[in-house]
Amino acid sequence: MESEIRETKGAGRVLGGETRRRALNRELLLRTALSIVDEEGLESLTLRALGKRPGVSQTAVYRHIPDKAALLDGIVEQIWRDVVAGLGAKSDAEGEESGGREDGGADIEGTPDFRQLARNYALSLRSTLLRHPNTAVLMATHPISTPEQYGLIASALHTVALASSAASTSVSDAVRQPNCRPADLTGLIQSVTVLTTGYVIAEVTKPVGGAGGEPSEAAMREAMLQSEELQQFLAPLADPERAWSMEREFERALNAMLDGWGVE
């Protein structure tokens, strides 16, 4: 107990040492667990399976991850970590390419325009989930529940508020402006998260039950014969030159949400 107390007290003073080694060990375990999910699916992820991976000891697993719930929470944490990193990288790249917006990152009334940054967040979330498709359902069914996850989400909100403020405006000033309140940003991020995760699940998840789930062109054409009204609405779907694109439909839905987003 005394050694744990000394370690905690020293955590704020020293970046190296035992505290950092413990953090790196946990990070390594969670990255290894994520690789199991990527390769074999969530059903194959257990503490025992993690402990059998090369370079991982069973003792280390239980020291840092006490049970299956903590393991799944850790996977969610890793996904959020990648999403936040992707958002920051995208914002930095856009800033370098454009040198900043002509209006300094603000709308005509001087209020930060956070819609584009919320869109960047959605794209980062989507690309991360597509790299780890076996985690999509986990993300949708495991709400944020750990200090690490809350910290990462706060970091995402902080990034949006910072990047959406004018260059001469501090973050604290930006989030106090009427159309960029923390509650509004939180609601926007939550809605964008649900939309994005839902689209990814629809795109990557295998049909429930293991059969079916494929669109039937014959059924559609049969329906078109029933009435002119059905033919009118279904004809575009039967057009071979109008291929269905989940990515395109996702971006249409996302843009519609962001364009219509209001504040209370």
Results as ranks from 00 to 15, higher is better:
2 E>K: 12
11 A>Q: 10
12 G>I: 09
14 V>P: 00
22 R>A: 12
25 N>E: 13
32 T>E: 13
37 V>M: 09
43 E>D: 14
45 L>W: 00
45 L>S: 04
50 L>P: 09
56 V>N: 05
69 A>M: 09
75 I>H: 00
76 V>M: 06
77 E>H: 06
77 E>C: 06
78 Q>L: 07
79 I>R: 02
80 W>S: 00
85 A>V: 05
85 A>L: 10
89 A>C: 00
90 K>L: 13
91 S>I: 12
99 G>M: 05
104 G>K: 02
105 G>V: 04
109 E>C: 02
112 P>K: 04
112 P>G: 15
115 R>K: 15
119 R>S: 11
121 Y>N: 03
121 Y>W: 05
126 R>E: 13
127 S>N: 08
131 R>G: 07
136 A>Q: 08
145 S>F: 01
146 T>L: 06
146 T>Q: 08
148 E>F: 02
149 Q>A: 09
150 Y>M: 14
151 G>N: 12
152 L>I: 05
153 I>R: 12
157 L>A: 09
162 L>M: 07
167 A>Q: 11
168 S>I: 02
173 D>W: 02
173 D>V: 07
173 D>F: 02
176 R>S: 15
176 R>I: 02
183 A>W: 06
184 D>A: 15
189 I>S: 11
191 S>L: 15
197 T>G: 13
202 A>P: 04
204 V>G: 12
205 T>I: 13
215 P>D: 09
217 E>V: 09
217 E>T: 10
218 A>K: 10
224 M>D: 07
225 L>E: 13
227 S>M: 03
229 E>R: 10
234 L>R: 01
236 P>G: 04
237 L>N: 00
241 E>G: 06
245 S>Q: 03
249 E>W: 03
251 E>A: 06
255 N>D: 15
257 M>L: 15
260 G>L: 05
264 E>W: 09
